[in-house]
Amino acid sequence: MFRFKQKLTQASFILLLSSLLTACGFQLRGEYSVPEDITAISVTSYDKYSKITRLVKEQLRLSQIELVTPNKDVPNIHIIGETITDRTLSLYQNTRAAEKEVVYEVNYRVTVPDLGAKDFTATMTRSYLDNPLSALAKSAERKLIEDEMREFSAQQMMRQMARLKTEIQEFEEKQHLEESNSNTQDNSPS
Results as ranks from 00 to 15, higher is better:
N94W: 10
N94M: 06
R96P: 02
A97K: 10
A97M: 14
A98R: 11
E99T: 05
E99V: 12
K100C: 12
K100S: 12
K100Y: 08
K100W: 07
E101H: 07
E101R: 07
V102G: 03
V103L: 13
V103C: 09
V103H: 08
V103Q: 11
Y104C: 01
Y104Q: 00
Y104M: 04
E105V: 08
E105Y: 08
E105I: 07
V106D: 01
V106I: 10
N107P: 03
N107E: 15
N107V: 05
Y108N: 01
Y108Q: 02
Y108S: 02
Y108D: 01
R109P: 03
R109A: 11
V110R: 00
V110N: 01
T111F: 13
T111S: 14
T111G: 04
V112R: 01
V112N: 00
V112P: 02
P113K: 08
P113L: 07
D114W: 10
L115D: 06
L115T: 10
G116E: 07
G116H: 12
A117T: 06
K118V: 05
F120S: 02
F120I: 02
F120V: 00
T121M: 12
T121F: 07
A122Y: 00
A122K: 00
A122R: 03
M124R: 07
T125K: 13
R126H: 11
R126L: 05
R126G: 05
S127D: 14
S127W: 06
S127K: 06
S127G: 04
Y128I: 06
Y128G: 03
D130V: 01
D130G: 02
N131M: 05
N131V: 04
P132H: 09
P132F: 10
L133F: 13
S134G: 09
S134H: 13
A135C: 04
A135M: 10
L136R: 09
A137V: 06
A137K: 06
K138P: 00
K138F: 08
S139A: 15
S139I: 14
S139H: 13
R142E: 14
K143A: 13
K143I: 03
L144V: 06
L144K: 12
I145S: 04
E146R: 03
E146N: 02
E146V: 03
E146A: 02
D147Y: 10
D147K: 09
E148Y: 11
M149Q: 05
M149T: 00
M149R: 02
M149F: 09
E151Y: 12
F152Y: 15
F152N: 10
S153G: 06
Q155D: 09
Q155N: 12
Q155W: 14
Q155F: 11
Q156I: 04
Q156F: 05
M157C: 03
M157T: 01
M157F: 08
M157H: 02
M158A: 01
M158I: 15
M158T: 07
R159E: 08
Q160W: 05
M161W: 05
A162L: 06
A162S: 15
L164V: 03
K165L: 13
K165A: 14
K165E: 15
T166D: 13
